[in-house]
Design a protein around this nucleic acid. Structure first.
Length: 315
DNA sequence: CAGGCGTGGCA
DNA sequence: TTGCCAAGCCT
């Protein structure tokens, strides 16, 4: 059976109800309201797979330090990676750095205002391109993130969770649900996202506080269980864990870290500047091939540089 | 296109 | 305590 041919509730009712809820309950976030397109772009990149509470303080520092794409593009990569701190997925920082350079080179330093040009920036995919077009420039675009997918799955489809991967049917549904009026569509994108973030959460949704509880297909269906088990990401013992530990060492280091120190806990303990982070790396008891692989991977990804002096953040 | 890629808080 | 999960992107 295809998607509901005739929704029990007219979309206009959902638009009004959820948008009203948003006006009353939305979080007061610094990248909402008065904010440059650059500030919006930075927030969207930082928020990829990273919670708001962790992003907020770093975003404040970045916008203070690098108010424009040109300011940021001129910064050394090492500074960028240190300022990124422990947000995770540091390749995002490097890609944003490259995006800023592209913005300066191809767009006179102004964040592009349309989906296609945004999509061509490194680190900007379909979600981020649509989000920046909508939230920074007020464009009518179909924004689909994990929150919106989950709200649609429950509210409209009646399933506990969206499919493991974004499907064409979901994009089509989201496009169909988008309000015709541009201004209302921008609000709708933000509203549904916020509903998913605050009420219609992945674990233990707060259905008792939901503004569209009465209209929810998942509730009407008796809150059926997910039809599949989400596969978790292993962490302990993975290359990712080792890469993270090495990056922490390099961020803490003011000078190249000789390869020997990556292996030799005894020698490492004498370098107090990086001893703490090296200690965490050694505590992983990583086997040689894995550490070699992690180091090579970091270099290949541009997150680290090697020389005779050792490993360091890229210049 | 399924899998790789950081990090830490919370149920 | 230990998985699960957070405004994805890229190959």
């Amino acid at each position: 059976m295809p998607l509901p041919a005739s929704p029990a509730v007219p979309p206009s009712v959902l638009h009004a109800t959820i948008n009203d809820w948003f006006r009353d309950e939305a979080r007061d976030l610094p990248w909402r309201g008065e904010c440059s397109a650059w500030g919006i772009l930075v927030s969207e990149i930082m928020l990829q797979q990273t919670p708001v509470v962790r992003v907020r303080p770093i975003w404040e520092q970045w916008l203070e330090r690098w108010p424009t794409p040109a300011d940021f593009a001129a910064a050394p990569a090492a500074d960028v990676l240190r300022a990124w701190g422990k947000l995770g997925y540091p390749r995002r920082a490097l890609r944003l750095h490259a995006a800023a350079a592209q913005i300066v080179a191809e767009h006179h330093g102004a964040v592009p205002d349309n989906y296609e040009q945004l999509l061509s920036l490194p680190g900007v995919g379909s979600y981020t391109a649509a989000a920046v077009a909508a939230f920074a420039y007020g464009r009518r675009t179909t924004v689909v993130d994990t929150n919106i997918r989950r709200v649609h799955a429950r509210l409209v489809i009646g399933q506990a969770l969206p499919a493991p991967a974004l499907t064409a049917a979901e994009m089509s549904l989201a496009a169909d649900l988008l309000p015709e009026a541009t201004e209302e569509s921008v609000l709708w994108n933000a509203s549904v996202m916020e509903l998913g973030a605050l009420i219609c959460t992945a674990r233990s949704p707060k259905c008792g506080q939901c503004p569209v509880f009465e209209q929810c297909a998942w509730i009407a269906a008796g809150q059926p269980e997910p039809s599949y088990i989400p596969k978790g990401q292993p962490w302990a013992g993975t290359d990712r864990q080792v890469r993270g530990a090495v990056m922490a060492v390099l961020r803490a280091a003011g000078a190249p870290v000789h390869a020997d120190l990556m292996w030799d806990a005894e020698a490492a303990s004498r370098h107090d500047e990086v001893a703490t982070e090296l200690g965490k790396l050694h505590a992983l008891n990583t086997h040689a091939p894995q550490l070699e692989r992690a180091l090579a991977g970091l270099v290949a990804d541009g997150l680290a540089q090697v020389s005779e002096a050792g490993y360091q953040l890229p210049r």
